[in-house]
């Protein structure tokens, strides 16, 4: 049987009080971080970046290996028919596959009308239900809180906190996120919010009662929220539900961006 030290209870009560104040004061939308947080992030981000790069390389090598095995099998069949052409074909296919993704990204950056900064996803917030990612670009690269983040597919989210070499991005899927949207064809205004009850989907709230929303409707950013520029693809409505009186309609949108496989993103630098 042990006897607790006489300082244990006052310390625990003090700790609980400090924690309650801390949690309460940091539970809202925070755009600024303290020096301690900034230093901690700057210490961690190079390691996260290094490990992520390593994993990406291993994944790419593994994919190449799989492709190579497939190509070998194809090659055996083709060699029987046209030996010389099959080798050349395999080589071209391999290099085309390897370059395709980067070429798409490069072309996207070239043709976009915004000033974009390419960034790599180096980590995700813990626990898993926080829809926040960590990117390898920060204050030194010109990233600021509030800037919009997109991918080649569509909207990704908004920069929240920035340290010298990294930044955290609140994904559009998060319940704290809200995006002003517009339907592609009928040009009706809607509000898009993260929905914790429907993981992976965004809730679509029409801003007036006479809006027609149906599955397949594409929704773009309206530009009214002053975070995302107008006209970026957010996604496609997959589900629509009317209230019991048939007066209001709510939709759910599948984002164009595949958040589970997000590896590279672009920060729109012109805020």
């Amino acid at each position: 049987m042990y006897r607790p030290n006489r300082w244990v209870w006052p310390t625990l009560i003090g700790l609980i009080l400090i924690l309650l104040v801390l949690i309460y004061s940091t539970s809202g939308n925070r755009f600024q971080i303290t020096v301690v947080e900034s230093v901690l992030r700057d210490v961690v981000s190079p390691f996260e970046s290094g490990i992520s790069s390593l994993v990406y390389r291993v994944k790419e090598s593994w994919d190449s290996l799989i492709h190579l095995q497939r190509l070998r099998q194809e090659n055996i069949i083709l060699r029987q028919k046209i030996a010389r052409l099959s080798a050349e074909n395999a080589l071209l296919k391999e290099s085309a596959r390897e370059n395709k993704r980067w070429a798409e990204l490069f072309q996207f950056k070239q043709t976009s009308q915004y000033q974009l900064l390419a960034a790599r996803v180096i980590g995700r917030a813990i626990p898993d239900w926080f829809n926040v990612i960590q990117i390898d670009k920060g204050k030194l690269d010109g990233v600021e809180p509030g800037m919009a983040v997109i991918s080649t597919e569509g909207v990704v989210g908004q920069v929240r906190q920035v340290s010298a070499n990294s930044a955290s991005v609140l994904l559009a899927l998060d319940s704290r996120s809200a995006i002003g949207g517009i339907t592609e064809k009928s040009r009706d205004f809607v509000l898009l919010e993260g929905d914790t009850a429907e993981p992976g989907l965004l809730k679509v709230k029409p801003l007036s009662n006479d809006i027609r929303l149906e599955p397949g409707t594409k929704i773009l950013t309206s530009g009214l929220g002053q975070v995302y520029p107008k006209g970026l693809l957010v996604g496609e409505v997959v589900k629509v539900k009317q209230d019991r009186y048939g007066l209001t309609v709510t939709g759910w949108l599948k984002p164009a961006t595949d958040f589970a496989r997000l590896e590279e993103v672009f920060v729109i630098l012109d805020k």
Partner: peptide, 21 residues
Amino acid sequence: GILGGFILDLLRGTFIGLSVP
């Protein structure tokens, strides 16, 4: 537990202290 909770929360940037208890 206190160390782990604080490190986790400081790196996440929101709800600091929530992982500690």
